[in-house]
Nucleic acid binder design. Sequence first.
RNA 1: GCCGAUGUAGCUCAACCGGUAGAGCAACUGAUUUGUAAUCAGUCGGUUGGAGGUUCGAGUCCUCUCAUCGGCUCCA
Length: 645
Amino acid sequence: MGRGSGVTVIVEGSSRTVPAGTTAAEVLNAGKDVLAARVDGRLVDLSAPVPEGAVVEAVTFLSPEGREVYRHSASHLMAQSVKRLFPRAKVSIGPAIEDGYYYDFDIEPPLTEEDLPRIEAEMARIIGEDLPVRREELSRDEAVRLFADQSETYKVEIVQELPAGQAISVYRQGEFVDLCRGPHVPSTGRIGAVKLLSLAGAYWRGDERNKMLQRVYGTSFPTREEVDAYLARLEEIKKRDHRRLGRDLDLFSIPEETGAGLVLWHPKGARVRQIIEDHWREEHRKGGYEVVYTPHMARLDLWKTSGHLDFYKENMFSPMEVEGTAYEIKPMNCPFHIMIYKSRMRSYRDLPIRWAELGTVYRYERSGVLHGLMRVRGFTQDDAHIFCRPDQVEGEIRRVLSFTLDMLAVFGFREYEIFLSTRPSEAVGEPGEWHKAEGALRAALDAAGLPYGVDEGGGAFYGPKIDIKIKDSLGRAWQCGTIQFDFNLPRRFDLFFTNDRGEREHPYMVHRALLGSLERFFGVLVEHYGGAFPAWLAPVQVRVLPVTDAQAPYAESVEKALNEREFRVESDLRSEKIGAKVRDGAMQKIPYLLVVGKREAGDGAVSVRARGGVDLGAMPLDAFMSGLEEEVRLRANETRLTARG
RNA sequence: GCCGAUGUAGCUCAACCGGUAGAGCAACUGAUUUGUAAUCAGUCGGUUGGAGGUUCGAGUCCUCUCAUCGGCUCCA
């Protein structure tokens, strides 16, 4: 604190002395673009007085923190606007999120889409009023009274849960006051342009036993142009949506007649899947795995033993009866691999045993969660189970971890999020053992030097896991790879091996999937490449386009030659103009279009047009084929042929 | 499952206050023989997601149901 006359602060690296009580805004000589201040690393309002010795920095929209302050203030603006238009609405919470903000309301009758423009217009009015945003600190009792007087029951509930002694901050702008930690922009006029995007339901406090509130999503930027650019970006992103591309490129469908969440892989989607699977098998062979096959259903008793019936029931379809015995369609592959393990005696010398299977499982997913290929009811996991001795488990986990990342890298994924998921509330086994298992996973992650978050309670019922999430085009992260430590199932099934002292001992298990499920992985892959698969994955690598019907026989001979070299190739023999054929080929995102006219037919050449509209000119067919062969061999992420092959 | 919205030709979308469903693209047929993102003409195509109801009459209004979309919850 200042000693009477003045305080010394450090602003942008240089030290200054100012009168005590000087605000951050004054110290920074803040212009309109400064939204808040960072004092000694902590975000505060511009109106906050700076203490002695403080390091003061300006926070603008250019920083993530600045955007958060800005959007959070915009959410208050929205709440104020809603309260003006719908005085009986109760507010709850309204944080900034990536690219925007939301606010949850309890409001009767519910808002409709038509209300959004009205709310937006009122927000614009409040911006015009340029109301000062003021922080006040209250005791808990005062805060409870304040919000109780306004019948803001949700706010009262939040305040009552805050510690009694602690001062509680509220922010007031005009007639609107909201419980908030802050900081906020100094006045409502600082918000430039706002846009409300959508309405959605959201449970109070995220708990489905609570009342469902109405959530309004919006975004805000300093200028209208930036809002428009953001909306345009959303439109662009939609074009990468795997559901749209799946239809446009004829990759898959999920017809209502088949059933929700049940995927039909069309020939072109199936080709890509097959390439993924072939690569997967080859890598597993090299990585010391054996492939196994198991059935799609098993007796219900098996799922009793495994614990699925106790801990996984809500994700399983109902059992069916066969000759008086109940059978269950499989939600997981592990019990089958366990039964293979049990089929004979195992020595410590046999371990680790690594068994992999592209195992198709069926899980009951609630109707509201289904989403294209990303969330389905029948899917094929690239599953494997490793049975090992306790002393091997950490090494095996590390090995799987690097295997996963290598596999993802081949498909062009170098960015992902890793989470350690710990014991869920419903789980088998002792907490102490869980703790040990979590430690082993943590050690493997640390050894690999990988940053990770912790998902408390996100583990499988039989053990903790490491999850690897990949982001889709909308920035939604999807869990793909997973590595799960399991000391429980071996015990439940009474698995053992004979150790080097001749005693029976339980093995440990590692459940793992590298890609997760082929459906989800393919969905993410489609979006990742926007449907423009690299040549090694593309369902059609080459399309031959004769300029006129006269070159049809030559085109067919080119197609045949390519086919014999095992390229995925087709010809467009329609009597269309070459421009139309090029356009159609481009829209199918085919890596290479070969234009063959009179000239090419004459000298055994092809005119190569690479994806993206790059005309590589004419080259001998052989040169094209060796170039493409190389590109495929390298699993190159981009088309890489150049002029003259 | 929950909240909200939406289902019209294969796709993208029209159809006033309830008055008897239409366009472009695709497909098909024919003409055209084309040199790097759409050649022309014609033809076909619909129990308006499904089932009930209101009405003289329903794509339009009501109820139920299925699916999809955006979220929430849950998950590979």
